[in-house]
């Protein structure tokens, strides 16, 4: 029982991290109808910037305090992600308004290639560490309830908390601020939003900025877990089933979907994996999402698809 719970909680926390990456997809898709395959590259790029500046800043300026260095590196990385967002809107999206979904998808793949290339040229292509002082040691919990208690990784737990906090902040931003309202208006209907005076281009920049921040947070958390390396870009592929499970246009969907996929992956790997030779984590999420789509084509919380001729 306690092993099952451990797996379950591990899955939930991994799921929280997936939803963090998935959020980036959903934000951009909602506001601009672009399925942003570059999200993974953005995670890698942001994490690389963060890791390298945290390393470079003390060497350049002589800041001894690691917290200060981390904070400054974070600020610089945010600025870089904002610059990326602005450039993407200015140089790519603006010229591709009203193109087909597949064309936009391919354009974001082009952006992904570019970011991967630039990131590794500027910041180097080794494995880097991000050390933001996350505790690494596991703790025992609920020892009074179960015999032996449950082993929980503190780092995962904190990461899940950060992810939850970010999700909450984003929800507030979307629901309560004027900019958030404008974002939702654009998501509903581009033309209508434009006709009441919402500047589409600026909204897109904002959305890409927000997606850049989620990418940075995801990059920091994943990076401090696994080290910053090229494989970080493939996190996006792991988060895709989350997005379609939850619905491409739904923020809560990204979170619930992330939790379902996280738990499903872990449980399947532990209980089903040994039967078929292991390593099924990668595709299990996709098959789960696929089976789900057969019954509910718009995802858990997606808007109902209405066809008109």
């Amino acid at each position: 029982m306690s092993f099952f719970l451990e797996t379950l909680i591990g899955g939930l926390m991994a799921g929280m991290l997936y939803s963090l990456v998935a959020l980036g997809f959903v934000l951009i898709f909602k506001a601009s109808g672009v399925f942003n395959f570059a999200q993974g590259a953005m995670v890698l790029f942001a994490a690389l910037a963060m890791a390298r500046f945290a390393e470079w800043l003390p060497a350049w300026t002589g800041i001894g305090n690691p917290v200060l260095a981390n904070v400054m590196a974070f600020i610089i990385s945010v600025a870089i992600m904002f610059a990326v967002a602005w450039l993407v809107e200015r140089l790519v999206l603006r010229h591709l308004v009203n193109q087909e979904g597949a064309t936009l998808l391919m354009a974001t793949l082009g952006i992904a290639y570019f970011l991967e290339g630039v990131g590794q040229t500027v910041f180097g292509s080794d494995i880097y560490k991000i050390d933001v002082g996350m505790p690494k040691d596991p703790v025992m919990m609920l020892e009074s309830v179960f015999e032996g208690g449950i082993l929980i990784n503190k780092e995962d737990f904190i990461a899940a908390l950060i992810a939850a906090a970010l999700v909450g902040a984003l929800a507030l931003f979307f629901q309560k601020t004027p900019t958030g309202r404008a974002l939702r208006a654009v998501a509903d209907d581009h033309q209508a939003a434009q006709s009441i005076g919402i500047p589409l281009n600026r909204i897109w920049v904002i959305v890409w900025c927000v997606a850049g921040i989620t990418a940075l947070v995801a990059g920091i958390i994943w990076g401090s877990k696994l080290g910053v390396q090229f494989s970080l870009a493939t996190v996006a592929l792991r988060a895709l089933p989350v997005v379609i499970l939850g619905g491409l246009t739904s923020v809560p969907g990204a979170i619930i979907g992330g939790l379902i996929i996280g738990v499903g992956e872990k449980l399947s790997e532990v209980y089903l994996g040994p039967m078929v030779g292991g390593g099924i984590e990668i595709w299990f999420a996709y098959v789960l999402a696929l089976v789900f789509l057969l019954f509910r084509p718009q995802g858990l919380f997606g808007e109902k698809i209405i066809d008109r001729v």
């Binding site: 391919m106 354009a107 082009g110 290639y113 570019f114 991967e116 290339g117 630039v118």
Partner: peptide
């Protein structure tokens, strides 16, 4: 190569 490939595609 990655960079130029990406730019050319866009």
């Amino acid at each position: 190569e990655f960079m130029i490939f990406g730019v050319l595609i866009v």
